[in-house]
Computed example of a mutant assay.
Amino acid sequence: MTLSMYQASVPVFLRALHNLQHVLRKGEAHAEARKYEPSLLLQSRLTPDMLPLTRQVQIATDMAKNGCARLAGVEPLKFEDNETSFTELHARIERAIEYIKNFKADQIDGSETREITLKMRTGEQHFEGQGYLLHFVLPNLFFHCTTAYAILREAGADLGKPDFIGKP
């Protein structure tokens, strides 16, 4: 049996975003239990030259929603990147999840060779669909989800590997 582009993308993206939301809830609960302003965590970073928690979540959701759209050959839904609270980040993740759920297998399957061009700060990057999914979207999605997890874990949130991995 072969793995389709849809199976390798949509369910993986949805699980990653659900797990990210779970991790954020635990981080927010940690701040509330310690009686400090939860929004302090939103600007936390692992090192001064890394992006803060809010931006990690924004990029993770962009990777998933934009990945689906580009594999399906449609223009990605734009988000404003203006979240300033956990409530707004949760709403962003929910919007991304609902958007991703609307993609059907027949839109994404067969996209292995679809030409995808990204305009980056460093210039254009050209991909075929399968390479885009396997070598750009998935690594970036998991990098930013992992970094969000690490920021919250470093801040003292009661998180472990099962929180990141989630339930099968």
Score class of each variant (00 low, 15 high):
residue 36 Y to I: 07
residue 36 Y to F: 15
residue 36 Y to P: 10
residue 37 E to T: 13
residue 37 E to R: 14
residue 38 P to E: 12
residue 38 P to K: 12
residue 38 P to S: 13
residue 39 S to N: 14
residue 40 L to F: 03
residue 40 L to M: 10
residue 41 L to A: 04
residue 41 L to P: 08
residue 41 L to Y: 03
residue 42 L to K: 12
residue 42 L to H: 11
residue 43 Q to E: 14
residue 43 Q to I: 06
residue 43 Q to M: 09
residue 43 Q to P: 00
residue 44 S to H: 11
residue 44 S to T: 11
residue 45 R to Y: 05
residue 46 L to Y: 06
residue 46 L to W: 07
residue 46 L to G: 11
residue 46 L to I: 14
residue 47 T to E: 14
residue 47 T to Q: 14
residue 48 P to F: 07
residue 49 D to Q: 12
residue 50 M to Y: 04
residue 50 M to K: 14
residue 52 P to W: 12
residue 52 P to K: 12
residue 52 P to M: 12
residue 52 P to C: 12
residue 53 L to Y: 05
residue 53 L to E: 10
residue 55 R to T: 10
residue 55 R to S: 04
residue 55 R to M: 07
residue 55 R to W: 00
residue 57 V to E: 07
residue 57 V to I: 11
residue 57 V to K: 04
residue 57 V to Y: 05
residue 57 V to D: 06
residue 57 V to F: 04
residue 58 Q to T: 06
residue 59 I to Q: 09
residue 59 I to K: 08
residue 59 I to C: 06
residue 59 I to T: 11
residue 60 A to F: 04
residue 60 A to T: 05
residue 60 A to L: 03
residue 60 A to Q: 05
residue 61 T to V: 10
residue 63 M to C: 15
residue 63 M to L: 11
residue 63 M to E: 13
residue 64 A to V: 08
residue 64 A to P: 10
residue 64 A to H: 04
residue 64 A to D: 09
residue 65 K to S: 15
residue 65 K to L: 11
residue 66 N to F: 02
residue 66 N to I: 00
residue 66 N to L: 00
residue 67 G to R: 06
residue 67 G to A: 07
residue 67 G to M: 05
residue 67 G to Q: 08
residue 68 C to M: 01
residue 68 C to H: 01
residue 69 A to M: 01
residue 69 A to V: 01
residue 69 A to S: 11
residue 70 R to V: 05
residue 70 R to H: 06
residue 70 R to N: 07
residue 70 R to M: 07
residue 71 L to I: 09
residue 71 L to K: 08
residue 71 L to M: 04
residue 73 G to Q: 02
residue 74 V to F: 00
residue 75 E to R: 04
residue 75 E to K: 08
residue 75 E to L: 00
residue 75 E to V: 00
residue 76 P to C: 07
residue 77 L to H: 10
residue 78 K to S: 08
residue 80 E to G: 13
residue 80 E to Q: 15
residue 80 E to M: 13
residue 80 E to N: 15
residue 80 E to C: 08
residue 81 D to W: 03
residue 82 N to H: 10
residue 82 N to M: 03
residue 82 N to F: 01
residue 83 E to A: 12
residue 83 E to N: 03
residue 83 E to M: 04
residue 84 T to Y: 05
residue 84 T to K: 15
residue 84 T to A: 14
residue 85 S to F: 05
residue 85 S to K: 03
residue 86 F to V: 08
residue 86 F to I: 06
residue 86 F to C: 09
residue 86 F to G: 07
residue 87 T to I: 09
residue 88 E to C: 04
residue 88 E to K: 09
residue 88 E to F: 03
residue 89 L to N: 12
residue 90 H to K: 09
residue 90 H to F: 15
residue 90 H to S: 06
residue 91 A to N: 08
residue 91 A to D: 13
residue 91 A to R: 06
residue 92 R to S: 14
residue 92 R to H: 14
residue 92 R to A: 14
residue 93 I to C: 09
residue 93 I to E: 10
